[in-house]
Amino acid sequence: MEGVRPRVRVDSATEAGAVVEVKTLISHPMESGLRRDGDGNLIPRQIINRFTAEYNGEMVIDVTLEPAISTNPYFEFDATVPEPGTFTFTWYDDDGDVYTSTNDQSF
């Protein structure tokens, strides 16, 4: 899907083992598949169905999203940073598109 923009903000860890706050937001209509258009036809479902955050290849959080989640899904969570490295955030769209964003942690 075009025009989908992820945004990520992560605190910078100051030492190994620090807990950082992670905020992610992605622009997406999250069309539920239950709505009808002006002619009474069902609008096909198109949502982000999965969101993951990994740190140096290790899974931090793996979320299954359902149609009830509203437009522009937002996630906020804490993560422990064991060593310098990179967060990789991935969003999976119903249409097969995958959107990614990264955040580097060095201290």
């Binding site: 025009g3 923009r5 945004r7 903000r9 905020k23 937001l25 622009s27 522009n72 937002y74």
Partner: peptide, 12 residues
């Protein structure tokens, strides 16, 4: 500004 979803449109 991060929480403000309007900023997505500014980026666009």
């Amino acid at each position: 500004d991060f929480d403000n979803p309007g900023m997505l449109y500014v980026d666009g």
